[in-house]
């Protein structure tokens, strides 16, 4: 046996290329796992498409949408609901990623990531970014199919929506990461899906304009205004039409900071929740 196999000189400090290699490796694994899970890709697409083709088609007849920014004319309900459905893809993808983290923690696979010598914040943020890249794939395939359904944002919108997708995906991913840290077992996750995903999605501007919600229920309107998902949807809506909604941008950045801080705290070995619970990325 050649001793060079097991020993080699370790550089005293990592260069930029080592950090990049680590980041690339984590993102690559997230994408590879997604590609291997064909059912996940299919369900990620089918869900918003069902809403677009069936729910939105039916609602078109009963729900008129007035001219509200960023739209300059009356738009079909399908057009209005598309940013909400993009948000839905991001939301489900984030929660799916969080679910896989709970699973990884239960099986012990999470430990592979957490014992890397790179700082834990860097590992977790890289994983979040990997999850967002996976969501990009889903969103653009959805937009391609939606285009065939005559949902045609301006061509520049396909580009300008990218930063909005990134920030919104990160925000939702950070929230999901935090949720994953406080869940003990995989079985508990179904409850969280019901208590997080559905309220977030329905109590937002994804399906109805906020002015409509205010007309129907001022209380629900206030809830929608405090819902981070509302701002993610609005940021995407404006960005898809080449515009920036500063309020939504500020809100998304603010929520991103809060959720990320919470998730990093929860996964911090010295302060976090894992050590107190006896769930060190697996069994104790």
């Amino acid at each position: 046996m050649d001793s060079a196999l097991t020993r080699q000189a370790l550089p005293a400090r990592w260069g930029f290329s080592a950090w990049l290699a680590c980041f690339n490796g984590i993102v690559w694994r997230e994408i590879l796992r997604f590609v291997h899970q064909k059912e996940r890709f299919l369900s990620a697409l089918v869900r918003p498409l069902v809403w677009l083709f069936i729910f939105a088609a039916g609602f078109r007849q009963v729900l008129g949408v007035s001219i509200i920014p960023p739209y300059e004319t009356y738009v079909l309900y399908e057009v209005f609901v598309t940013p909400g459905l993009i948000g839905m893809i991001l939301l489900f993808n984030a929660m799916q990623s969080s679910l896989s983290m709970v699973y990884d923690r239960e099986t012990g696979a999470m430990r592979t990531l957490l014992i890397s010598p790179f700082p834990r914040w860097f590992l977790l943020v890289s994983k979040l970014v990997g999850g967002v890249f996976v969501a990009f794939l889903q969103v653009y395939v959805f937009l391609l199919i939606a285009y065939a359904w005559e949902i045609e944002p301006p061509p520049i919108g396909y580009l300008t929506v990218l930063p909005a997708l990134f920030l919104s995906g990160l925000m939702l991913g950070a929230l999901a990461l935090f949720i994953s840290s406080v869940i003990r077992q995989l079985e508990n996750f179904a409850g969280v899906m019901n208590f997080v995903i559905f309220p977030m999605f329905f109590a937002s501007s994804a399906l109805y304009p906020l002015w409509r919600i205010r007309e129907a229920s001022p209380l629900l309107y206030e809830i929608c205004r405090f819902n981070p998902f509302t701002y993610a949807v609005e940021l995407i809506r404006f960005a898809l039409y080449g515009q920036l909604d500063p309020v939504s941008l500020a809100a998304v950045l603010g929520f991103l900071t809060i959720f990320l801080a919470g998730a990093l705290y929860a996964y911090d070995p010295s302060k976090g929740l894992l050590g107190r619970r006896g769930a060190p990325g697996g069994a104790a």
Binding site: C22, G25, W28
Partner: peptide, 20 residues
Amino acid sequence: TLDADLSALQNLTYHGALHG
């Protein structure tokens, strides 16, 4: 703690990335 859906080589390469 290996990822069952990845090959042996992919698992090792991933670990390598985690070490830069």
